[in-house]
Design a protein around this nucleic acid. Sequence first.
DNA 1: TCTGGGGTCCTAGGACCC
DNA 2: TCTGGGGTCCTAGGACCC
Length: 433
Amino acid sequence: MMALVDLNNFYVSCERIFRPSLNARPVVVLSNNDGCAVARSDEAKALGIKMGAPWFEIRDLAQTAGLVALSSNYALYADMSDRVASLVAGFGPQHEVYSIDESFVDLTSVRGDLVARGLHMRERILRWTGIPSCIGMGPTKTLAKLANHIAKSAERKPGSYPTHHARVCHLGVLPKLELEALLALTPASDIWGVGRQLTAQLADGGITNALQLARLDPALVRRKWSVVLERTVLELNGLACIALEDAPPNKQEIACTRSFGQPVTELQALIEAVSEFASRAAIKLRKQNGLASSVQTFIRTSPFRRGQPQYSRAATVPLHRPTADTRQLVAAVIVGLKSIYQPGYNFAKAGVMLLDLQPVHVQQGELLLEDEVLPDQGHLMQTLDRLNVRFGKKTVVLGSTGLPAATRSWDMRQDHRTPHYTTRWADMPLVRA
DNA sequence: TCTGGGGTCCTAGGACCC
DNA sequence: TCTGGGGTCCTAGGACCC
């Protein structure tokens, strides 16, 4: 039996812990650059604000409906997520942190009343961290996801599902007919793995709810769509196809991409930007003890500025030998950038991807010429990482990322950011007796 | 004026190879 | 008259997830 613990309106819930005045008010958390709404409180959803709504389109609601918008504070969310994950680890013998606000837990060997256990877990997370959550259970990951969806909807949208499923919903103990009734109540688009395109294609074939989807012939689904959707159909029928990954595999690629706070035209500013992105990506790479064999750089104009000339190019640069050395990665990224840069465009976004990753320990040996010396084996980078952990990010950086004190035209906007309450001494909240 | 970031998997066309 | 088959690599794009 699989359980999914999903934290409600997670980013908003994190902000409310430290600013209780936000309770019961419409609140959204904005993406980087204060671009669009990526988290919404129930009250904000009730105002009709859609996931991903651009801030400039909903800004009026701040005046007319008391909407509060906050810039995203990932240091806070990541820390709160870790705290919750450590509690969820006690829920069952094996768990998988699926995203910043979701964990799967394998309850197969757990005896007793799982619903009672789920309610208890939910209560503990709320009491110990202040974050509300819902828990779904079922024989497969897809059904646990569905159960979670039912638990949330039954709590928030009266009439959508029977109220006894609210907050904690266990599909694994229901009689067949009752489960089918719930599937029939669920639009196909609410099923994990069914996005916009598939929803439209399924609807063309008359498939609009989860029960119809579950009753399709898996072989036909594979032929007409893909092995991915076939797995979804099988999982809806209780056949587990997606395993729990309790030790997350290393990344196959590592990306760092950003939209700019304002348009960038000059090569020099782009060099600074991609140098910084490569530096950040390199830190992630060294954290997973990996080496990159090639790097990709891309730059693009804004697809939303239709009137302006559009340009979008990417270049992949292979490395002589796989490396995790920031200097070599930055150098390669700049080579790539120069090969695709064109003056005269308003660039809105750039990014760096580290590709063909491999673990340090399987490094390919090589024949050396007699006077050739192997490059630095990472001691400099280890020291760099340690200094930046101990004395703070950006204590030591590469010069090509631009001087830290300089105003970098490409830096992102963050006009409504809250303090790093839990990860910076100076930002720690004071409690008055 | 103003539209996110980080992933995985899959497909497809063109260049090139034997 | 009549012009193959199998493969890799690169680039680009699209689907899905959170």
